[in-house]
């Protein structure tokens, strides 16, 4: 019961945020609405019993990625629909009729394909009679990360280091 309510709230948040990202004319608002989507996904993780995943979603997206995106939007001229107020005249295109038509057709093709694939898969999916009760996944995930998946874990740390250094080097202003 409680989980159903949480699921419905999260689902509404996800769908509303996603539609907002698609149809918003203003990039700043799109970023903010994406935050709603990401919180909704964190709520869905919580309903799924993936507590650690939900918390990492909150930490990484809300704290890191969204602020980064907002900064990037601001540094590159702000929202798209009005003349910019920090001396940057150029207005960025947010898509035209042509691009939306192309996108719609692509989506149609993709969605039909994916629905087809999904249907054949769901036929073989047996509904479990009773799902296991929720348990804490933190210790299990921790153990798995340093035993079975230790290579991926280490590689991802190298990836993050590379991303850190690379982002710093790329974004540094070079004069002369």
């Amino acid at each position: 019961m409680f989980q159903d309510i949480l699921f419905i709230c999260s689902a509404i948040l996800v769908i509303a945020g996603t539609l907002g990202v698609v149809f918003s004319k203003n990039l700043m608002r799109a970023c903010t609405l994406l935050l709603g989507t990401l919180f909704g996904v964190a709520g869905l993780y919580a309903v799924l019993g993936a507590d650690f995943l939900a918390a990492s979603q909150l930490v990484i997206y809300a704290g890191g990625v969204i602020i980064l995106m907002l900064f990037a939007v601001m540094l590159t001229g702000g929202s798209a629909d009005k003349a910019n107020k920090f001396g940057i005249e150029k207005i960025m295109g947010m898509g035209s009729v042509k691009t939306y038509v192309i996108a719609g057709l692509t989506v149609l093709v993709f969605s039909l394909t994916i629905m087809k694939l999904l249907a054949s898969f769901l036929k073989g999916y047996q509904k479990l009679d009773e799902l296991p009760a929720f348990t804490s996944t933190v210790d299990k995930i921790g153990t798995m990360l340093v035993t079975d998946h230790v290579l991926a874990f280490e590689i991802s740390s190298i990836l993050l280091l590379g991303a850190l250094v690379g982002a710093a080097v790329i974004a540094r202003p070079r004069r002369g």
Binding site: T32, F52, A55, Q57, A62, G63, G64, I67, L70, V138
Partner: peptide, 21 residues
Amino acid sequence: LNVGVFFLVGISSLVGVAVFL
């Protein structure tokens, strides 16, 4: 919560977004 600290760190960064917005 069994991820209490993590949750707190994550949810309190909403304040950062709010300050920026």
